[in-house]
Simulated scan of single mutants.
Amino acid sequence: MDKSAIRRRLALGMTVLTASGLLALASPGHAEAAGYCSGRKVRTLSFSTGSVQVYKRDGYVCAVTFAKRVSGRKTMSVSVQARGSRPAVDIGQYTHHAGPVTVHAGHRCVWIRGSVGSGSVSSGWTLC
């Protein structure tokens, strides 16, 4: 293999790496939520100051609240309650996210709540 062929392959490799890095940065939403919860994403509950990502797997429901803007610590919370059970709650002073919290819902409805600062969301009974 001559030097020009090696240069072409190196250039192609760098192009592929650069493009994949740019795609990773440009992907919408909070792809990192999948790192906190297993299963498939079933809902995104958006509100003025953030969003709650909801995942479901084998009868378990998991949720994480993400701040829309990451700027210092603020009060954040997330809770998931299966009908007939107590809620799993995470509340505190966070910079990026609250949770994850997971409950076993089986085939029962769940109520999901999340807040970041003064903004909040409440789903009502869902995923029935």
Rank of each mutant, 00 (worst) to 15 (best):
H107I: 08
G29I: 03
G35F: 10
Q93E: 06
T49S: 07
K3N: 12
G84A: 14
C109R: 15
A82N: 05
V16Q: 00
G21A: 03
A34N: 04
D2V: 11
G117Y: 03
T18C: 00
T44P: 06
M14C: 04
R86F: 12
L10F: 05
L127K: 04
P87C: 14
V52C: 07
S79K: 09
E32L: 13
S120V: 11
T65R: 12
A98K: 09
R83D: 08
G117R: 14
W111R: 15
C128Q: 02
L45W: 03
H30G: 06
K56Q: 14
A67K: 07
V52M: 03
V61C: 08
T15N: 00
R40S: 02
V80T: 06
K68G: 09
A82M: 13
R69D: 10
V61F: 09
F66W: 15
R9Y: 05
E32H: 08
R108N: 15
S118V: 06
I112Q: 02
L12T: 01
G13Q: 02
A98L: 12
R113G: 10
P100Q: 03
T95I: 08
H30M: 13
L22Q: 00
R86A: 13
P28Y: 02
Q81A: 10
A67Q: 12
R8V: 01
Y94V: 04
A31H: 06
A26P: 03
C128G: 02
S115D: 05
Y94W: 01
V121G: 04
C62D: 11
H107A: 15
V61Q: 06
S4G: 09
F66D: 08
I91A: 15
S77H: 05
M1H: 11
V16F: 02
S20G: 02
V110S: 08
W111G: 05
L17I: 07
T49R: 14
Y60A: 09
A11F: 03
G35V: 08
T15C: 01
R57G: 03
V101M: 12
A88I: 07
R73F: 07
V101C: 11
D90V: 08
S123G: 09
T65L: 09
A26D: 01
T75L: 12
G124A: 08
I112K: 02
S85Y: 15
S77Y: 09
V89R: 12
A63N: 02
V52W: 04
K56Y: 03
R86K: 10
L45H: 09
G124R: 12
V42K: 00
H107D: 13
P87H: 05
D2H: 03
L127Q: 04
R8D: 01
V103C: 11
V54L: 07
H96P: 04
S120H: 15
T18A: 05
D90S: 15
S20Y: 00
T102Y: 01
V70I: 14
A67S: 13
G39V: 06
T75A: 11
L23C: 06
K41H: 02
C109D: 11
T95Q: 14
K3I: 14
G117K: 04
S38T: 09
G21M: 08
V54G: 04
C62A: 06
G72R: 02
V78Q: 13
Y60S: 05
P100Y: 00
S27N: 06
D90G: 08
L12C: 01
T126F: 14
Q93C: 07
S79D: 12
G92A: 07
A19I: 00
S85G: 14
V103I: 14
S48E: 13
R69N: 07
A33I: 10
V61G: 08
